Amino acid sequence: MSDIDDERQRIRERKKRELQERLENGDELDTSETDDRSRAPGEPISISGEGHLEEVVVEHDVVLVDCYADWCGPCQMLEPTIEALAAETDAAVAKVDVDAHQRLAQQLGAQGVPTLVLYADGEPVERMVGVQNRGTLEGLIERYS
């Protein structure tokens, strides 16, 4: 099992324990808190490291991860689409700078940029390399939402 899988399992187990404790204590579940947690932010999330990406993937049902580099022309072309998807879809959109996070980019399978990885329910379900059109990405997000 990889470090990412181990971390994912620890986060899931912690959240499960917290929920179980709340239920055993007779605490009412605050659905607005749950809804807020699963609601995707309206702008891309800049990933600060492996643990941060893991938190985002576990917290949201569908996450589109954009592995990019500032010097990459195709990445710059894709940027408006990435921002629109973050603002207009139910998916969380995360950005991984491959220069700043080389190990994480390697774990995500980013051999070229841009590389997009779609997660659904905590698992990677699609990987695409190169500029993708907005319709294709929206369709994938809808399929897994």
Rank of each mutant, 00 (worst) to 15 (best):
S2P: 08
I4S: 03
D5E: 14
E7H: 08
Q9P: 01
R10G: 02
I11R: 06
I11V: 05
R12T: 03
E13N: 13
E13R: 11
R14F: 14
K15F: 09
R17A: 13
E18D: 15
Q20V: 14
R22N: 10
R22T: 08
L23V: 12
E28P: 03
L29V: 14
L29H: 13
D30V: 13
D30L: 14
D36T: 15
R39V: 07
A40E: 06
P41L: 12
P41F: 15
E43I: 07
I47D: 02
I47F: 12
S48Y: 07
G51W: 09
H52Q: 07
H52T: 12
L53V: 06
L53D: 09
E55T: 08
V56S: 06
V57L: 12
V57F: 05
E59D: 15
L64A: 11
C67I: 01
C67R: 00
Y68P: 01
A69R: 00
G73W: 07
C75M: 07
Q76C: 13
Q76K: 15
M77Y: 13
L78D: 08
P80Q: 11
E83Q: 13
E83V: 11
A84F: 11
A84L: 09
L85N: 05
A86H: 03
A86M: 07
T89S: 11
T89Y: 10
V93C: 05
V93M: 09
A94H: 00
A94Y: 09
A94V: 01
V96Q: 00
V96I: 10
A100L: 11
A100V: 06
R103K: 11
R103W: 04
A105M: 03
Q106A: 11
L108T: 00
L108R: 00
G109M: 01
G109F: 01
G109R: 02
G112S: 12
G112D: 07
L116V: 04
V117N: 00
L118Q: 06
Y119F: 15
A120T: 02
D121F: 02
D121K: 06
E123A: 08
P124V: 02
V125M: 05
R127C: 06
M128I: 02
V129Q: 05
V129F: 08
V129H: 04
V129R: 01
V129P: 01
G135Y: 12
T136V: 14
L137G: 03
G139A: 15
L140D: 07
I141Y: 10
E142H: 06
E142G: 03
Y144W: 11
